[in-house]
Design a protein around this nucleic acid. Sequence first.
DNA 1: TTTCTCCCCTAGAGCGCTCTAGTATCTTGA
DNA 2: TCAAGATACTAGAGCGCTCTAGGGGAGAAA
Lengths: 336, 336
Amino acid sequence: MSNRGSALSANRPPTLEDVAARAGVSRALVSIVVRGVSGASEVTRQRVLEVADELGYRPDSRARLLAGRRSRLLGVTLALNHPFHADLAEGLYTAAEQEGYEVVLSAVTRDRDSRRAIDTLLDYRCAAAVLVGPLVREPWLSALAERLPVVVLGQHSRSRAVDVIRTADEAGMRLGVEHLVALGHRDIVHVDGGRGPGAAARRRGYQTAMRRHELAPRVVAGGPAEEDGAAAARALHAAPPTAVLTYNDRCAVGLLDVFVRTGIVVPEAVSVVGYDDSQVARLPHLRLTTVSQDASQLAALAVRRAVARLDHEPVADRELVLTPHLVVRGTTAPPG
Amino acid sequence: MSNRGSALSANRPPTLEDVAARAGVSRALVSIVVRGVSGASEVTRQRVLEVADELGYRPDSRARLLAGRRSRLLGVTLALNHPFHADLAEGLYTAAEQEGYEVVLSAVTRDRDSRRAIDTLLDYRCAAAVLVGPLVREPWLSALAERLPVVVLGQHSRSRAVDVIRTADEAGMRLGVEHLVALGHRDIVHVDGGRGPGAAARRRGYQTAMRRHELAPRVVAGGPAEEDGAAAARALHAAPPTAVLTYNDRCAVGLLDVFVRTGIVVPEAVSVVGYDDSQVARLPHLRLTTVSQDASQLAALAVRRAVARLDHEPVADRELVLTPHLVVRGTTAPPG
DNA sequence: TTTCTCCCCTAGAGCGCTCTAGTATCTTGA
DNA sequence: TCAAGATACTAGAGCGCTCTAGGGGAGAAA
């Protein structure tokens, strides 16, 4: 906002050199001050910061990244347009900042696959990668993990080369089943996630919990998106159960929509439980009962883990599994 | 994948220097080859590329960005979790690649405002900024535009300092109104977007179009999200119109949901038109009639404009306004 | 032959920063 | 009094690349 009277050429943003010249100290000292490390007297520190502010100095990320021994850059892949990923990304930004790291996002889209997304991160020479988006297949994942610490966030991975931070999907489904059973339901269907991340575990958790209550599991093919839930709802129309647990919230939304349209009243006729507690679940007109994964905690742990690896701290377990909890809202009730 | 037998130290990724040494040429020549510019014979070009591939060489973005005169980096702000923004981002990636630019995303979240997001982009010294996410207020926007070319994408801006690529919101609403009028509707309500981007223009477009048909405009307060549409639906319950145009698709989804729940059948009792043609509108169970903004074209034009500014090409108009078109799906029909 | 091009290639500076090694100054203790 | 240690600061190398200036050799023109 100021920049007045300085000897800066043209429109070029001020550099350390400019600040140093104006403050009458060396470039190295300014570097020390702006990084906030020790080695400068309080008096000079103040003066340098003042000058920096006056010139509108902002450190150049590229140069900083290039010069530093450790890169302090966290690469994140994610699928845009996925509410839960958005929640995680939000948490990652916050957590990374607290640890003194920067975040660079790389989106996975229809014509930009995970490998492309990861390559971009690699080109930035980020210190560690957090994979929120779809994973790359095994030989690639391990190869990646050889180059930098890799944290898989929010989904399971067989790979023994990466860290995994996720919630216990089986336990989550059990919570859902138990809630419904406690309400008096016995005819409980699971609309699954097919081959989606975590789908197998959730299916398994559902089946185990059902058997524990001596109930017959009934799985209907679903998927990760609204349309999959909608399709499942239509498939269920002939013989609707009294309750449904879906693979995720988006799936639940599609299912709910078709239910409502076809005159199946929720929760009076059918109870519905989602999974993720993403922002849609909290919408006042939906009020979806759902299994909550604490996105910000997951994100914080992922960042922590990445930093731990970078600092070569000892890590007890590759996999960190959080216990989810159930958020009861308006889509579940005793069977009518 | 190879890297065998090279004299590379430890785990350090190969550099230009490594490739040059192995190929027996200078660093500069390798640079020429990997950048794909002229100045190398076909024979050496092949050999260098072979060696580069063999070593698994990938250029270091940080260094490349730092050394180059022009940065070839396009900064993009966006709100995660907004379907239309995701569509735009997807288009930006594709378009930027074609122009030989890289994209860096900076998310705007609840505790990371637009200014923070933009500062991050600035720290990367990107060549130009494309603002998809919420805008910063005026003094800031102009100040930003003084430092680099700024393209506002998908929304209006008063600022004369920035380029704007968007669709004609007024025309879009007129299309919606005209479609409904042609179907025989006369009692048409607009659920508006409040102070959201483009909301004023859409409201105006609706009002103008209604008056042109000698119909009385009726605007109900809405907003950008599902819950706003839902609230509007409840507000309309006492005296439902025969048709509704909403501010955007998300708003329409919330509205539809409440309509369906309260027994208002769409499109038989009420027709609904959304805005954006985002991915939700295309969901098979929704099949939302909506005003389509061609995200990939918008994105391509935004990139084109940014590059034009960087190349100092003459630009006719600061603002480029595309004509939207209507996508008729299943939520509109003649009044019952 | 000489000179002028053109083509292929290299040397080396420099982008803005970090970080190691070192210098100068000030304390402190015996 | 001087050595020993802090403390405050600086010089300068180097991160991996791009890009300008220029070298050298081959072929064309004079």
